[in-house]
């Protein structure tokens, strides 16, 4: 028995390191699972891009689920995500709220003019304070908020067609099952 002890120890180490490699490839190391999921979205009241006199707040968006997409003209991944947002996410039929995060409003307007504007409304969080309340730590990030104002799902990083099929659609299906 004691003769096999080194072999057993070696086998255990192989299993441990193998598990570590599998774990690291199966999980996105940059994703922090948001503690806000299934909790009410934080209250916010932010000006609309291009019209500072108009404000959109949490109350005015209640009643129907919507997507909140955190983006910025400075964000490279947002350009990659943009076509998916404009086509695949749009097809899901939910209102799409743009959350312009830590950006110059002029740059944001120019960015939307250049790439196209998939959003129903764009709100501006210029200094990132509302972003902190949402637990935002970069862009892009996308939240699904239900009609009662509860955050149901969050995606960190660019949306791909795969993410829409494997995550967005099931999340929406779960919402639809609950009824209005």
């Amino acid at each position: 028995m004691s003769r096999f002890l080194p072999l057993i120890a070696f086998g255990l180490l192989v299993a441990l390191f193998g598990f570590g490699i599998w774990w690291n490839t199966a999980h996105d190391q940059h994703e922090i699972v948001s503690p806000l999921i299934n909790k009410p979205a934080p209250a916010f009241a932010l000006p609309v891009l291009g019209d500072d006199t108009r404000k959109v707040d949490k109350q005015s968006l209640l009643g129907k689920p919507y997507f909140l997409n955190v983006f910025g003209s400075w964000c490279i991944e947002c350009v990659h995500e943009h076509p998916v947002l404009s086509v695949d996410v749009k097809q899901l039929g939910l209102p799409l709220v743009g959350f312009n995060y830590k950006d110059d409003p002029q740059d944001a307007t120019a960015w939307l003019a250049e790439h196209g504007n998939p959003f129903d409304v764009v709100i501006v969080d210029r200094d990132g304070r509302a972003g902190i309340d949402f637990g935002v730590y970069g862009a892009p990030e996308t939240f699904l908020i239900d009609g009662k104002g509860v955050i149901r799902y969050k995606h960190v990083g660019p949306i791909t067609p795969d993410v829409v099929a494997k995550e967005f659609r099931p999340a929406l299906a779960a919402l639809a099952k609950e009824g209005p």
């Binding site: 922090i32 503690p35 902190i132 637990g135 730590y137």
Partner: peptide, 8 residues
Amino acid sequence: LVDRYSDF
């Protein structure tokens, strides 16, 4: 901070 960004 934990409320927003978890124990992370």
